[in-house]
């Protein structure tokens, strides 16, 4: 089954990104495809390569990057939401790309299931 995931909150502040990541990993482990993760609202902060959590904490941004590399997950950051919040190509972490809201609607159309994580 083809999954789309929406992440509406930034990392660390809210559990949404953690829940979304663990859901994505579990979906892939069961043989599903996670076709796209769309980051919206403050969720765009998940794509900041300037993120530096303490050593003993999970690195939410790098975790997404790794998932994208290993399982060809398309990590899309909403351009309008990103510009509002200071996320640009120059501080975009590896594996993420910035694109329009149409990518969210497209995920709704093309995926068998769309699961939203937010506040």
């Amino acid at each position: 089954m083809k999954f789309g995931i929406v992440v509406n909150e930034g990392p660390y502040q809210h559990q949404a990104s953690d829940s979304a990541y663990l859901f994505a990993k579990a979906a892939i482990a069961k043989g599903n495809e996670v076709w796209r993760v769309f980051f919206y609202h403050d969720g765009v902060q998940n794509a900041s390569k300037l993120t530096e959590p303490p050593q003993d904490d999970r690195h939410i941004v790098n975790r997404w990057t790794k998932l994208a590399e290993e399982h060809k997950v398309d990590l899309v950051v909403c351009v309008a939401a990103a510009l509002r919040r200071g996320i640009k190509e120059e501080n975009l972490a590896q594996g993420f790309r910035i694109s329009g809201l149409g990518q969210l609607v497209e995920a709704g159309i093309k995926c068998d299931r769309l699961v939203t994580f937010g506040d």
Binding site: F23, A26, A27, G118
Partner: peptide
């Protein structure tokens, strides 16, 4: 349920809605 069970629930239902 665990996360695998969460995935099953989404697979077994045609749609899901998050009441944020």
């Amino acid at each position: 349920v665990d996360y695998a069970g969460f995935v099953d629930l989404t697979s077994n239902n045609k749609t899901c809605q998050s009441w944020l």
